[in-house]
Computed example of a mutant assay.
Amino acid sequence: MKKTMLSVIGAALIGSTGLASAEELNLQLNWTAGGDHAPIYYALQEGWYDEAGVELTVRQGSGSGAAATALDVGQTEIAIIDTPTALQFLARGSKFTGVMVAYNDNAAGLYWRRSSGIETIKDIAGRSIGAPAFDATRQMWVPAARALGVDPESVNWVNLQPTGKVAALQSGAVDVTTHFYSVHFIYEDIFGDDLGFALLRDHGMNTYSLAYYVADSVIKGKEEAVRNFVQTTQRAFAFCLETPDPCSQALSSAVSMRQSDAARQLEYAARVMPGVGNDLPLGSWNMDRIKADYTVVREAYDLGEFDATTKFTNDFIDESIAYPGM
């Protein structure tokens, strides 16, 4: 905790000096704004990016694949991407680099109704799973299924709109659906004791999840701005994980979300962001995990040899910023 508070003070002092002129940077979210983006909106509201000399523009997203594509073709400078998706792009030659972790643990889960006859994850064999074609869990289904002890070919995938998952599960149109843990409370509220759930992290599929990636050309041309962005974002995450209420309020105000929903999304996201057993500075990568993650992705997509650690860096991280309580 002491390290976190000292870091916040230090960042504020550095930011107060500012730069001669603000450097513009644009960020594309992985999806429409939710609880895990609250630190960004709080830092914007409080002027922390401005103080650090960064004029940040935030764009809503439509999936990690879309965010990675936008970053790859120069439509954005920074993007939040699910790391297994990013690794696919990087192995095929995309020119961007991971600079900060948002979710240290895999936040993806599978949801079902117990009344449908599914008691444990093994019972999904022969059932239907509803999700968009670009859904993160669907994209990584082969290694995920193996980790779960399920034959990957034993389920039938059904295409759904991203906003149609809960309704499809309610109606019985699908037996199972997928979602990130940040919206777990919605399923709890709707299904109550009938809810069945499996977090991939807890079943042997614990790849890094959402993280911040920056185009290599931007790192080269705006290195100081990237460093200021990363360290300001670290500062915001440290604050919001420890003091969530003002951050959920900032998110609610910025994107017209009910404050209660914003608060609960941040609460649930915070349960998987720091990572089980993780003692690294906030947002830092463990390169051994990157290697292991690429092994999983490589096998899933029949990719070639690639030293994934060359496309991830802790160089922009302020190592004095710790997760609250660490």
Rank of each mutant, 00 (worst) to 15 (best):
G35H: 13
G34D: 15
G63H: 08
R59W: 06
A38Q: 10
E46Y: 02
A68D: 11
L27D: 09
G65A: 07
S62L: 01
Y41I: 00
N26E: 10
D50F: 02
A66T: 11
A68I: 10
Q45C: 00
L71A: 08
T76D: 09
A68Y: 13
G34W: 08
T76R: 04
Q75G: 12
W31P: 08
I40Q: 03
N30V: 09
P39F: 03
L27Q: 07
Q75D: 14
W48Y: 08
A66D: 15
R59K: 13
T69E: 15
G65I: 07
V73N: 08
G61L: 02
E51N: 02
Y42F: 15
G34K: 11
L29C: 12
T32W: 07
E77A: 14
Q75I: 01
P39D: 01
D36Q: 11
G35Y: 14
A33Q: 12
D36S: 12
I40K: 02
Y42T: 01
I78Y: 03
D36T: 12
N26A: 06
A66I: 04
Y49M: 05
A66E: 15
P39L: 01
G53L: 01
T76K: 06
A67K: 06
W31H: 13
G61N: 11
E77I: 07
D72P: 00
G63K: 08
Y49H: 01
G74D: 11
N26G: 06
L27V: 06
Y41S: 01
Y42K: 05
V73P: 00
I40A: 06
L27I: 03
D72V: 04
G47F: 07
S62D: 15
T69F: 14
G74P: 04
V73K: 07
A52R: 04
D72H: 12
